[in-house]
Nucleic acid binder design. Structure first.
Length: 646
RNA sequence: GCCGUUGUGGCUCAGUGGUAGAGCACUUCCUUGGUAAGGAAGAGGUCGUGAGUUCAAUUCUCAUCAACGGCUCCA
């Protein structure tokens, strides 16, 4: 008999060779029907694999991340089986589970595959799934495995085998398909009910562009068709929220081939929104002791030679701007830091001047690769809500805490309530690639960890993710439909103060090196607005809405009254427009609703005679008639409270 | 940069080897209408760009540009 310890601490006795599935059945049949895999002593196993020793066991279902991953991995195998049956002779590379769904990389040989094939594959997969073929695990020696795949002429699996140790090599078979696979897998294909193959893409073998391009097919699957439908609804929702689509519809920004790819043009409404955001942060920064600065968009070559950017980016980025002066070269600035370092150097600094916080909404240009460009989230010219904090090593922690406060203030004001922070530290073993003294690094790394802890941030620590010039803290937010985005960042920098030979006079009357902290709560205006658009589906909170109120006169007769209302609202700093088209009120309301303008004021005979306005809230309908002054109060209050969209 | 898909009036999209169509938007006229689309008329496109095949190309071929999906998740 062996002892199996369950997650709640209960210990049960079973015959040796019992499987997790047997254990599940002994608890309840209903549970057993849901079991996809199990964690045995911390390792994920097939539910049917015999257990021969005492073990702790956790049953995994669709509700567990590892359960889902196993499910998708098995789905990838199912897809491979379907592909092999439809396109005999194709060769498979790897087919892992993703955060959502799975893919398989395939060498199709002479076959071509298109969208229609995906639909056919889905049908084939469903058919194979219905057979409820078991996933059978088989241990095999390396030599036998090499023999097996050698006979098949499968150079990809042979390549994988080359990197594996003998012993513990396993094959998995379901139906007519056998694959080299570590597993684990779900009990049988019958669990897979809702299947959707989402797209086809090219992917280099081993991710190296010198290698052959394989065909990658992405898919996602679920234990019921209901869950698949829910997922498809979510995809639809994400599509509706796409900032590129909404940006066009709401006339926020545009791109022009003539201007150049990745160079956004901000339209009046988008510029309005962006300026609101900028003013909001500027005000908060002013209150937190930041000093605004402004620097030019280009800088002399020497600036970037000093900063090191010339060496790092020179060749792979925008090329120098030449002048009539022989040999003179300027570069578009890829970042604001070098300019700010020069500002620091404009006068001798005392420890009493520190921390010195220089802030600028600085536009920078980076030559991103063609394929990297994406809407507003990846562009070639963008504006960072940048600031550089020059401080003494001992002040790092305090400054970090203040920046965290600022970032959280920004997030809360925009109703990003679900966020985590990633702390990126040095590689634990190899420290040769980092610049700066060990002492300072330790100080800064601890400062970040402590600051984050004291501010109660949910954090993940990643070793080896720090930049060569210093540790950092990045904020990830989840938007309204659960997608993750990386926004604000705070980075310590030991490199630039060194390169620019920055210093301050300490209490001891000697020169010291300041620490520099880069920080950007938004990340960039472009990226932040993209995320904001998707987060709120284009329904901006009132304080940000480009147009806050639309006046809808019932007919031309009430245009003069609309003008009067408009003037009063404008005097109260409310952004208002009049719909003076010769259209019926129903039409005007429809168009304004679709433009996602928060408030509509319907103006007709009654309102005019009484000096009132009939308020309609976007998405909510008619909310009553009030005097103009009361409406202004209502707006001001909502703007002041920075209430979020609903 | 690489692979795949796409490229038709401002927008969304149909269509054809014989020099193009719809809806919305726009202009004008009628209508002056109370909470999600009133009616009529009109204007607007060298079908991304360049070359080739053809009597003839927006349609076929090639090149080029741009957008989109991928190229990170490693049996």
């Amino acid at each position: 008999m062996i002892q199996i310890t369950l997650p709640d601490g209960a210990v049960r006795e079973y015959e040796g060779g019992v499987s997790a599935m047997d254990v599940a059945k002994s608890i309840s049949e209903g549970l057993a029907r849901k079991v996809l895999a199990a964690t045995i002593n911390g390792e994920v196993w097939d539910a049917g694999r015999p257990i021969h020793e005492n073990a702790s066991l956790q049953l995994l279902t669709w509700n567990d991340l590892s359960g889902k991953a196993t499910f998708w991995h098995s789905s990838a195998h199912l897809m491979a089986e379907a592909i092999e049956s439809m396109f005999p002779g194709v060769k498979f590379w790897v087919g892992p589970a993703l955060e959502t769904g799975f893919y398989y990389d395939i060498d199709l040989g002479d076959h071509q595959i298109g969208e229609d094939d995906l639909r056919r594959l889905e049908i084939k997969m469903a058919e194979l799934a219905k057979q409820s073929n078991a996933f059978v695990r088989k241990e095999i020696s390396k030599a036998d495995a090499i023999q097996y795949f050698g006979d098949k002429g499968d150079q990809y699996k042979l390549d994988l085998l080359g990197g594996l140790q003998d012993g513990g090599i396993t094959l998995y078979t379901q139906g007519n398909f056998t694959d080299l696979c570590r597993g684990p897998h779900i009990p049988n294909t019958g669990f897979i009910k809702g299947i959707k193959l989402t797209n086809i893409a090219g992917a280099y073998w081993k991710g190296d562009e010198k290698n052959k391009m394989l065909t990658r097919i992405y898919g996602v699957s679920f234990p019921s068709s209901k869950e698949l439908d829910e997922y498809l609804v979510l995809l639809e929702e994400a599509k509706k929220r796409d900032h590129r689509k909404l940006g066009k519809e709401l006339e926020l920004f545009a791109f022009s081939e003539k201007v150049g790819m990745g160079l956004p043009l901000w339209l009046p409404k988008g510029a309005m929104l962006r300026e609101r955001l900028q003013q909001f942060l500027q005000k908060a920064q002013l209150e937190s002791g930041y000093l605004p600065v402004i620097t030019p968009h280009i800088g002399h070559k020497n600036l970037y030679v000093t900063s090191g950017h010339y060496e790092k980016y020179g060749k792979d980025s925008f090329q120098p701007i030449k002048t009539p002066q022989e040999g003179e070269e300027f570069f578009l600035k890829p970042m604001n830091c070098p300019h700010h370092c020069e500002i620091y150097k404009t006068s001798p600094r005392s420890y009493k001047d520190l921390p010195l916080r220089l802030a600028e909404f600085g536009t920078v240009y980076r030559y991103e690769q063609h394929g990297e460009l994406h809407g507003l989230t990846r562009v070639r010219g963008f504006t960072q809500d940048d600031a550089h904090l020059f401080c003494m090593p001992g002040q790092v922690k305090d400054e970090f805490k203040k920046v965290i406060d600022l970032v959280l203030y920004v997030f809360n004001s925009l109703s990003f309530t679900d966020y985590t922070a990633q702390i990126s530290l040095r590689d634990k073993t190899d420290r040769s690639k980092y610049i700066g003294s060990d002492e300072n690094w330790n100080l800064a790394e601890n400062a970040i960890i402590e600051a984050a802890a004291e501010k109660g941030l949910k954090t993940v620590v990643e070793y080896g993710e720090a930049a060569f010039y210093g540790p950092k803290l990045d904020f990830m937010v989840r938007d309204a439909i659960g997608r993750k985005w990386q926004l604000g960042t705070i980075q310590v920098d030991y490199n630039l103060p060194e390169r620019f030979d920055l210093n301050y006079i300490g209490e001891d009357n000697a020169k010291h090196r300041p620490v520099m902290i880069h920080r950007a709560p938004f990340g960039s205006m472009e990226r932040f607005i993209a995320v904001l658009i998707e987060h709120c589906a284009g329904k901006f909170p009132l304080w940000l809405a480009p147009t806050q109120v639309k006046l809808l006169p019932i007919s031309d007769k009430f245009l003069p009254y609309a003008e009067i209302v408009s003037t009063q609202l404008k005097n109260a700093d409310i952004r208002v427009e009049i719909d003076d088209r010769n259209e019926k009120i129903g039409k005007k309301i429809r168009d304004t609703e679709l433009a996602k303008i928060p408030f509509m004021l319907v103006l007709g005979e009654k309102e005019m005679n009484e000096g009132k306005v009939a308020i309609r809230r976007q998405g909510k309908g008619d909310i009553g008639v009030t005097p103009i002054a009361e409406f202004i109060d209502l707006i001001n209050e909502e703007v002041k409270s920075k209430k979020s969209f609903e």
